[in-house]
Amino acid sequence: MGGKYRVTGDQYPRMRRPKKRGRIVAAVIASVVVLGLFGYGALQLFDVFKGDDGDTKANAAPQNRPCTPTTTAPALKPMALPQPAGVTVNVYNATTRGGLAKTTADAFASRGFKVKAFGNASPPYDKKVTQSALIVAGPAAEAAAREAGTQVAGSMVKIDPTRKDKNVDVMIGNAFTALASPADAAKARVVAANPPPPKAVCATGAPATTPAKAPAKP
């Protein structure tokens, strides 16, 4: 090359990007990456404390969902119970254990109940009573059935609307071991005479909750 500007020597000058500018660009990129990671971590931490797992609606607590309260059993009315001497029972063995009807009938008799008959349970109940005892009676003997049921912890009373007599059938079940102690029978008698209302539950099986009242306006 001629003229005013002329390159001399046997090497050409190298064209390089200024070092200072390259460092600034690298620092900016690193800052952006760090800020992005920090923001992502903060978002994850917020979700942990919030309890949001990405499926909030599906995992909402059942007790917080609105439901229509239902009851598992009809309410029983308070009822004056007769004394054991005014209750006539038939004791039937619905288990595979032999001699249970006779010994249980004697135990009822020793507590003042009138025992009319004892023996094996009929086919509708034989080997089909899982609880300690099933007390079966007609509507006219409901109070007597409740009285007999106080003597067997874990028993259940069944009212047969087709029955017209006032006798009470005690179907001994698989869970039966012995009659309740006199003290426990006395406590059960109080509950049987004044049964608590059945607990309301939701259709999902969770207990029904009473909705909170709105605060009164000033």
Rank of each mutant, 00 (worst) to 15 (best):
A188M: 15
V191K: 12
K158M: 10
T177E: 00
A212Q: 12
A183R: 15
K158A: 08
P197R: 05
R163T: 02
N194L: 04
M156H: 07
L179W: 09
G205I: 05
L179N: 08
A203F: 03
A206Q: 00
D184G: 08
G205E: 00
P197N: 02
I159Y: 05
P195Y: 07
V191G: 05
S181E: 14
K164M: 01
D165P: 11
C202Q: 01
A153D: 14
T162I: 03
A192D: 15
L179F: 09
K187I: 07
V190R: 14
A203Y: 00
K199R: 08
P198E: 10
A200S: 04
K187W: 05
P197T: 01
P195W: 05
D165C: 13
V168D: 15
T209M: 07
D160G: 03
P161K: 03
T210Y: 05
K213R: 14
D160Q: 02
P207K: 00
P198M: 11
T162H: 04
D184A: 15
K166H: 06
A212F: 06
P207T: 00
V170F: 10
P161Y: 02
T209E: 09
P196Q: 03
I172C: 11
R189S: 13
A188K: 10
P207Q: 00
P195D: 07
T209A: 12
I159C: 07
K187Y: 06
R189C: 06
T210Q: 11
K199V: 06
A180L: 11
G205M: 08
K166P: 02
R189Q: 15
P215C: 13
P196V: 03
A193M: 06
A192Y: 10
A206G: 05
A193P: 00
P207W: 07
T177I: 03
P198W: 10
V157L: 14
P211L: 09
S181G: 14
I172S: 10
A193I: 00
A206S: 04
P211C: 11
V157P: 13
P207F: 05
T162G: 02
G205H: 08
A180Q: 13
A188P: 09
A178C: 01
V157A: 13
K166A: 11
T210C: 02
M156E: 15
A175N: 08
K187T: 15
L179S: 09
G205V: 07
D169K: 06
